[in-house]
Amino acid sequence: MIAIIDIGTGNLSTIERVTGGKITMEPGEIEGAEKIIFPGVGSFQYVASIIRPVRKILINRIKSGIPYLGICLGLEMLFDSSEEGGGEGLGLIPGRIKKFAGVKTPHMGWNQVKNLTDLPIMGGIPDNSFFYFMHSYYAPDTAYTAMETDYGGYFTSGIMYGNIYGVQFHPEKSGDAGIRLLKNFGAIA
């Protein structure tokens, strides 16, 4: 079962339909999931507070090596903290989420994603394809930066760390390329 973490904002129907996952916030279901998708909408502090009851379970499941896909705040939550506000991330990747400076914020619209490595979730999707972004904060450059996007300079738009994937854009809103990404994640063994 693919658990789609339900934080009470955002529509998960596309993700549910494409991946065949189950929208849930039940600790038991998250614990038993074979894969986890965490689509985050809202502020860092809001999402951090909502997931507090299942934080430990999430950390343990992801550390156990099952495939994880974090979308937008679901990527940001992998880090320790954010400039956006208080609250603890999952702390699986060291670092603090930063706010854009010197560019129109939010970064909103279709932008191109450049793959820095071979990514199973990007299989069959041409490099530099457009995806939809809607965010004011972004992840720092780390050893796990696997995708980059140019917005007044390149920033980390995707990460890969073992079976952990994070994308700053919204595949569920990115037309055919996004649907393909979700299908690819669903197909990872």
Binding site: N11, S13, T14, R17, Y132, M134, H170, E172, K173, S174, G175, D176, G178, I179
Partner: peptide
């Protein structure tokens, strides 16, 4: 809104 969301995949 629900119908639109379930049938289209752009914002």
């Amino acid at each position: 809104v629900k119908r639109v969301a379930s049938e289209i995949s752009i914002p």
